[in-house]
Amino acid sequence: MTFPALRGAREYLLSGAPRSALQARCQRVWFSWRTFSANPVAVAGLLIVLALVSAAVIAPWITGSDGLDPELSRRLLPPSAAHWFGTDELGRDIYDRIIWGARITLYIVTLVGAIVVPIGLLIGTIAGYVGGIVDTVLMRITDIFLAFPRLILALALVAALGPGIENAVIAIALTTWSPYARIARAEALTLRGSEFILAARAQGASTGGILLRHITPLCVSSVIVRLTLDMAGIILTAAGLGFLGLGAQPPTPEWGAMISTGRQFLLDQWWVPTIPGIAIFIVSLGFNLLGDGLRDVMDPRHNA
């Protein structure tokens, strides 16, 4: 692939008549980025999310400990130069635990996304494309899950499966996938009769192939927006389960669980439960800001 020289890059991106599909795509991405980056709030969201990801990746290098081993000689120390966020009831550095906790948060949201999106897309595209009784049945099921109380169902599920991150993820995923099915179905419905789908079918493409190669890619932008906006909710639910003692188990540095164990120190050592709460707040705020920004770029109809 011949990449244009940096000097030509501007012209390549701005030329009114793109000469290849690649160039057209690059231009589209470039214009989207320009709209997005003109919105400082959205960029702030992006930075927060990037900070979360990098903290998770480089955790071993920016922490002094793994945040798991108790060191009882330095219990409940207030924030200081040595311990930026203080230490908890077992003498563990709270800063270290927050950083390691980023991994858990990221693990949870990634896992939920990885379960929810394929299931939603699969059910939605099939329902919309095949139509008829299949559509009715699948959408009825989707509606049932849409009407479920999320947190309570997660509680019941965890009660049966036992507490733990993975079970919390399953519980959250079970009540999160249905909107994706709706999005995908709407997209598939509008595309079903379109010329290029007919053309693909005339060329002998199978239903599976059409769903995968032609319809699914067109759902991507709506799905990304929705997923980003859902992230905050997922993080808050996971933290809530952790707080109730039903998610990640001690000594795992999950932020919700940290609030739960630090709760008894609220009055005298405020930092123990407060800092993880702030971490949760900032990260879910970041996803919300990013999601709003992405929606403005990718889905101008919702621009309000």
Partner: peptide, 22 residues
């Protein structure tokens, strides 16, 4: 609105108890 969307309610309740009660 963004605050209400992003804040963990249980944490907020805890902090509010600390301030207004404690």
């Amino acid at each position: 609105g963004l605050f209400g969307y992003s804040v963990p309610i249980f944490w907020l309740g805890m902090v509010a108890l600390l301030i207004f009660y404690g």
